[in-house]
Design a protein around this nucleic acid. Structure first.
Lengths: 234, 234
DNA sequence: TTGACTAATTATACCTATACAATTATAATG
DNA sequence: CATTATAATTGTATAGGTATAATTAGTCAA
């Protein structure tokens, strides 16, 4: 692993293990340089990473301070961020409803930037959070990128398989969020009533070379879904 | 303005004015160094900023490429990001319903990290997007930070006043999002029916020294509100 | 004694320069 | 056509100097 990532991880671990509170001042730059035997630039890069994650904030002339969000029980919209513990806070499981290779609709082809005759994997899942129905998810994967899927992979973590199993690098994402009323079918899956509120999140995930490989439409149970988002550098 | 911000702005302007499409390759690092008479580190910092904003993506060994989100008509959740044009895409106006100095409730005091006896500005506004009711907003400002507000400031832009008028630096934010059903009062404001879906966003804004100064609760009209979010570095 | 201004110190932010590593694209080769 | 070498291009790490903001301590005056 890269040095600045190691440094960032160790600082993150230190904050977490010592349960440092919001506003706690961390050692000054020079101390960190000594402690990790790294140059100023490397430490700064590590700190920038932590700042981007929302774990610290830096005040010129003053110091480096711990930042902790004030509420628990919310799901991170950019789940790469934050303490790993936040992810373990929830027990999320999946049930597979369908797994097929299909021809894409126009919507899917557009979002994945492929032709209509190229095959895509279609995956339909229900996800549970702490035993309660969280959401219904329909995902489409470009078959020329994600060449193989099976029930086990889909039930566990597709992203883990894509990165570890296939050795692909996920680069960035687009997310579109809107609210509306549940259809009858959606209401059945979520054990709610037709017309009840829903939150719909459509996401497109791209490889680090810019190729979109996953288009997902997720409908959330409005009673179970709360999200948070940490901004920095406004 | 800082050099790397200037560089970033000029690159952003170039992309926008030439309407460069997704995937267009930008000049290589060395060309940019020459063009802007800056060091490699400065250019990289500018590019990192643009990448964080979701405007470009970099592929090692290949180049720097333009990234453009594929859909229009969505509001940026992290509105600092993206082309300025995206913001001008909407005509957002405000109507002030109430402006008072009040004692904070426990909820407000907690979120602003102040005592119960400290005064806060309470602002209630309705915001319109392209003439349609977008949301009802209740905001609380720490009076020891935002020392003065009036109707004009509230009707225009409070954030512009805080940064330009008061010379304060906004540092970062926390946002919490959930969905639910409209109350009767909310429904009246939004010209919807009681029980219809709503999206509630609670935000806390912090100065760059870490002090929270604004706590806002915004209830959105589900028919008018669509949001997007660009992730990078997953 | 209090308050206001000033100066020194501390600490991070910014900019430059350089060397080498890692990845991708391209050309050469068999 | 596949393999391999080469070039092109960005990424990482280090070092050091300058700039700017925040804090602290000190000085002076009312």
């Amino acid at each position: 692993m890269l040095k600045y990532q190691q440094v960032a991880n160790q600082i993150e671990l230190y904050i977490e293990q010592h349960q440092l509170q919001q506003g706690t001042k961390l050692p000054v730059l020079e101390s960190l340089m000594d402690e990790f035997s790294a140059s100023k630039s490397t430490i700064i890069k590590a700190l920038d990473l932590l700042e981007k994650k929302g774990l610290i904030f830096q005040v010129r002339g003053s110091g480096i301070f711990v930042r902790r969000k004030s509420r628990m029980g919310y799901i991170n919209l950019l789940s790469n961020q934050g303490f790993k513990k936040d992810l373990e806070e929830f027990d999320i499981t999946s049930e597979m409803l369908q797994l097929d290779v299909v021809k894409p609709t126009q919507e899917v082809a557009d979002n994945l930037q492929i032709d209509y005759d190229q095959g895509v994997y279609y995956v339909k899942r229900i996800r549970y959070i702490n035993g309660q129905t969280l959401c219904v998810e329909e995902s489409y994967y470009d078959k020329s990128v994600v060449t193989y899927l099976n029930k086990q992979i889909v039930t566990e973590s597709i992203f883990h398989y894509v990165t570890e199993g296939l050795g692909l690098n996920i680069g960035f994402s687009e997310m579109y969020i809107k609210t509306g009323k549940l259809t009858e079918e959606e209401a059945n899956y979520l054990h709610l009533k037709q017309g009840d509120p829903k939150l719909v999140m459509e996401s497109i995930f791209f490889l680090s070379n810019g190729k979109p490989f996953d288009f997902s439409k997720v409908t959330y149970n409005y009673e179970q879904s709360q999200f948070f988002l940490l901004g920095s550098g406004i």
